[in-house]
């Protein structure tokens, strides 16, 4: 994996591995992050994997930029030839897609995509997604890629309150809001699943590289699984 490094903060180094979003690259970067954590131990305070990058925040009492880069270079130049098998269990997410309650953007979006609400739900729930990165909020997983017919820019005006569990799309990605928060993505439905649980290990249900599928469920199933309206 080709790489480059740059200073991204007084105690931060950003490693770049490419320019294009690619689920396989995200999975490799996630695994590399775990490897670096094991190799560099106490020197690292935080590792943030994203689509094409790894941000390392380090303890300046133990390392400076040059010393850390010197330690990273052999580790990055001698990566395992092929990425370890990333085949993980697919996580199935039940979603109640409903234009009247959980999916307030379904109707407008279907119009824009020139399809019916049913087709739109089918397009969203009929493919497997991969988690690229976590960010924005605890356990918020950016997943891709959407069917090209569903690609649409974010809402002009973000909502100040998006309910927890909301399943949403924007650009060529989909995500689930783990907690109630502001948000500018288009809301299609809601899942009763808990995406972030402080007491679980790890607390985030989804990890980069994880395979995910959405399944449409009816109102009764949604409610019986603990969903709220």
């Amino acid at each position: 994996m080709h790489w480059s490094a740059e200073p991204a903060g007084v105690n931060a180094i950003l490693l770049r591995f490419g320019e294009r979003m690619d689920p396989a690259l995200s999975a490799c970067i996630h695994q590399l992050g775990q490897r670096l954590r094991a190799c560099l131990g106490d020197s690292l305070l935080n590792i943030t994997p994203a689509y094409t990058t790894l941000l390392l925040e380090y303890d300046l009492r133990l390392e400076d930029y040059d010393s850390l880069l010197a330690r990273l270079t052999p580790l990055l130049n001698h990566q395992p030839e092929s990425a370890p098998e990333t085949r993980s269990e697919v996580i199935h997410i039940p979603v109640f897609y409903d234009p009247h309650t959980t999916g307030p953007d379904l109707t407008a979006l279907a119009e824009r995509c020139q399809c019916s609400v049913e087709q739109l739900i089918h397009l969203h729930s009929s493919r497997e997604y991969r988690v690229y990165a976590l960010g924005f909020a605890p356990g918020f997983a950016y997943m891709g890629e959407l069917d090209s017919r569903l690609i649409s820019a974010r809402r002009e005006t973000p909502r100040s309150r998006v309910p927890a569990g909301s399943v949403a799309i924007a650009d060529n990605q989909t995500a689930i809001y783990p907690i109630e928060s502001p948000g500018g993505w288009h809301l299609l439905g809601r899942t009763p699943m808990k995406l972030f649980n402080v007491d679980a290990d790890p607390p985030a249900l989804l990890q980069p590289g994880q395979a995910v599928r959405f399944h449409a469920v009816d109102r009764d199933t949604y409610l019986s699984l603990g969903g709220t309206l």
């Binding site: 903060g9 931060a12 770049r16 994997p49 689509y51 094409t52 990165a133």
Partner: peptide
């Protein structure tokens, strides 16, 4: 730009 991790002070 593709989003990346950001440190304090960025």
């Amino acid at each position: 730009l593709v989003s990346s991790g950001v440190a304090a002070g960025t």
